[in-house]
Nucleic acid binder design. Structure first.
Ligand SMILES: [Mn+2]
Ligand SMILES: [Mn+2]
Ligand SMILES: [Zn+2]
Ligand SMILES: [Zn+2]
Lengths: 146, 146
DNA sequence: ATTGCAAATGAGAACGATTATCGTTTGCGT
DNA sequence: ACGCAAACGATAATCGTTCTCATTTGCAAT
């Protein structure tokens, strides 16, 4: 059976507080996988939940360290978080509308390991960001709003 | 024959000023390819050249737009610049000492294009950063000092 | 060489994202 | 219900970067 949110927090060694539960809910039941701290803060306010911005930042970092979330450093200066579901993947970001698409390519992954090994490095992790324009109709070509 | 620095600036549509010449020199004759604005600023001060930090930021951005430099967004929040010598490459960053190694892999490059095309994107550019530990002796395993 | 003026510079203010501080509140084991 | 460490929230502080604006400079035409 599925674990409840409080259990997830317990597992992570975090006590189950209101702000933590609300923030975790945003990621597990929200529709946009990738959220910045500001996104999270605004979404909490919008749903009437009164959580401080400092708490949002604190909790996001705690969730990252606990392995519940993954942090990405896209261009643009702000960190973006998403639920950690165990499956590593890379990202393609639309320069027109900000839409983020995920992909995984075994050839790229294995080449990376090989290249690093040849250069004498033990890989911890990596980030591959492709910046591009959508050429399909799914791109509204408008900046990401609320 | 080689072009002089003032000519490079002229070509780029930038008038040849003292701060610009000094900064360009740092990149063409300096030993560390990858420098942050702060790095550049400190190196200028160290060599007795009195250039304002605002000017450093302005000039770096101008050089980027002029195609003289390339900007990278590594983790850690600060932009890093390097001389644009026309050859795209990706980077491995040592988590121990900060050392940056460059590489280029045709397989990775072509897979990226293919993946993006399949997803319906026209690629502008991409960044691939591998974070790793040196396992060879070239790694002093100390944080990058001055 | 001198002059004129737009372009560039530099000191410092302002900014946006994030982190630190600290008095108050809360989860939770007893 | 109690007690207390942990967590919270308002706000100050920090960090990298950009903006503002008065002063200086490159450079082309005298
Ligand atoms: Mn993702
Ligand atoms: Mn490089
Ligand atoms: Zn798009
Ligand atoms: Zn190293």
């Amino acid at each position: 059976m599925e674990k409840s949110q409080p259990e997830h927090l317990k597992n992570a060694g975090l006590k189950s507080t209101l702000p933590r539960l609300k923030i975790l809910d945003l990621f597990t039941s929200g529709q946009d996988r990738h959220k910045s701290a500001e996104d999270v803060y605004k979404q909490l306010l919008a749903s009437g939940d009164d959580v401080g911005l400092a708490t949002v930042y604190r909790v996001l970092t705690q969730f990252e360290h606990a392995g519940l979330l993954v942090r990405h450093y896209f261009e643009g200066g702000k960190s973006v978080f998403e639920l950690n579901e165990g499956k590593h993947h890379d990202h393609i970001v639309c320069l027109q509308c900000g839409h983020v698409e995920e992909f995984y390519d075994t050839t790229i992954e294995s080449r990376q390991k090989k290249v690093a090994a040849e250069l004498g490095f033990a890989v911890h992790d990596h980030s591959l960001h492709i910046y591009a324009d959508c050429i399909k109709t799914k791109c509204p070509h408008k900046p990401k709003g609320v």
